[in-house]
Design a protein around this nucleic acid. Structure first.
Lengths: 129, 129
DNA sequence: CTTTTGTTATATTTGTTATATAACAATTCA
DNA sequence: TGAATTGTTATATAACAAATATAACAAAAG
């Protein structure tokens, strides 16, 4: 998994990290049980501070996406089952203002459906059944 | 259009404002040509600073969603046609990390489709054909 | 003529992001 | 066992964004 950081981006570095790790898992590039570089290693590779990596890892840990212990470092979790109600609700809350904006821009229902399908396939690339 | 602000929210006040105005337009509660309260009026109503409202209005102006001049204040724009490529691309970029997260949580393609359709109807509520 | 409008400018406070160090206990490895 | 590496925690600092407080201006409305 290649991870890169854009220092000129509006999105915080630790958010960029989270997004790329999540993208890696969703695409299948990162599989359950797979191990991420140590926070110090990753920090050195990307040229950022140790705490920035730590923040990203720990937020993903709080999300249940990573497990991080002192022995194996950060490890990708396996799915524990179907998404919880809280998880679905979080996605819903994040999606809503973006869809409203899309509608504002004049996107039709079909265009939104197509866009979501396109993105789904762009992300999974054939994996995830 | 009733607008409210959560001072404890993670999302900045001016972002909350933008989201609610966009939601109002997408739902049909705000129609093209309709006029929003002046920045000072809105600031007083919500108990926030004039500049916070100004920032929200001006960013929506930059998005082409509002027109704001000295005579009529902030006015909702009519759709100028189908969404531009830049607009579609912006929606795409914002949607992608959220969909990746949904997939990470174990949401299936169908669940994502259903969620988007649900939200579409929840937002438009029967309007927008 | 007074009031209200959007606009612009400056200054200040607060919270977030990111960095720089430093230390600690637990674990790994030679 | 001893050295190195791990995640964790703490503190201090710099840079930036968000929000507020004032103030002033020209344009438009009443």
């Amino acid at each position: 998994m290649l991870i890169s950081v854009d220092f000129n981006s509006e999105t915080p570095i630790y958010e960029q990290l989270k997004e790329q790790i999540v993208m890696g898992i969703a695409s299948g590039a990162l599989k359950p049980g797979e191990q991420l570089p140590s926070i110090r290693q990753m920090a050195e590779d990307l040229g950022v501070n140790l705490h920035t990596i730590n923040k990203a890892y720990n937020q993903l840990k709080a999300d249940g996406i990573l497990t991080v212990d002192r022995r194996k470092g950060a490890v990708v979790n396996a799915l524990t089952g179907p998404a919880t109600l809280q998880q679905k609700d979080e996605i819903r809350k994040k999606l809503k203002p973006i869809l409203a904006r899309a509608i504002c821009f004049g996107l039709s229902k079909n265009e939104i459906e197509d866009l979501c399908n396109d993105l789904y396939h762009e992300i999974t690339g054939g994996n995830h059944e």
